[in-house]
Design a protein around this nucleic acid. Structure first.
Lengths: 133, 133
DNA sequence: CCTTGACTTGGAGTCGACTCCAGGTGTTAG
DNA sequence: CTAACACCTGGAGTCGACTCCAAGTCAAGG
């Protein structure tokens, strides 16, 4: 699969895909004779993983470290697990914070809704008054 | 309350507090005779609100627009509500994405845990073999 | 009176994460 | 044979959100 198609499928720009590879977020992608990237199954799974992790805000640097360990093989399993655990905990913490913000937004929206309803009622009253009945 | 204390209490740097005010995220804070900021109750509530919203990743620009509407008074209630609804929806969407990532991280961590356990068992077996009993 | 320390401003610098560009190559269609 | 097109590279530019700095002011203590 060539880069344009991958870009389409995963919603990442071709620039971003090349950038990810350049900085080591994704190990060198398979190329055809002409030097053109031709993503295989494994490459795609990596793109998917990185897209997912980046989408949740995990820092590029951390993911680079992680992918480097993956490349180094079985001896790094423990270290990799530690990275994932730390990032999982950070992510959970961020989500809790966001939940509080979400609650606060919902509350404020409710308040606005009530205020708008009240305003509307008043308008009706004014109309009635002006209509004189 | 002076800026250093606000910074302490809310965990925002004094630079950030001044920056927020400069760009209009927080309306001009009350000053004492010497021109030194002296945050009152209302200022603090605004700091708290902005800190909360920024903490969840709402863009500074959107919040500036929102705060501007707040300053403009009651006629902007509807518009403000619309902003909050949109941001609430975006936030909820981001949280869903993050939940998927969280699940994926948890799954991967489990896999690593199992792999490490297996490795350990093998080590024990090797030890037993080498001990010869 | 002078120093110290917390404050002020305007403006420049940094950081993370892309995003864009110029100039070059390789394959396919006319 | 050449034009069009999708790809390539290295490097520069952009963007959002701070963060830092120099130079100045003011209030309190020695």
């Amino acid at each position: 699969m060539k880069i344009a198609e991958v870009s389409q499928q995963y919603g990442l720009s071709v620039d971003t895909l090349r950038y990810y590879e350049r900085v080591g977020l994704i190990p060198p992608v398979h190329r055809n004779q002409g030097g053109v990237r031709d993503y295989d199954e494994l490459d795609l799974r990596r793109v998917d993983f990185i897209k997912c992790m980046r989408g949740a805000g995990l820092p590029v640097e951390v993911l680079i470290d992680y992918m480097e360990l993956v490349q180094q093989g079985d001896s790094t399993t423990e270290a990799r697990k530690e990275i994932l655990i730390e990032q999982r905990n950070l992510l959970a913490a961020r989500m809790e914070e966001m939940q509080k913000t979400l609650d606060r937004l919902n509350y404020k929206i409710e308040v606005y809704e009530k205020a708008l309803l009240k305003k509307e009622k008043e308008m009706v009253q004014v109309e009635e008054l002006m209509a004189g009945d």
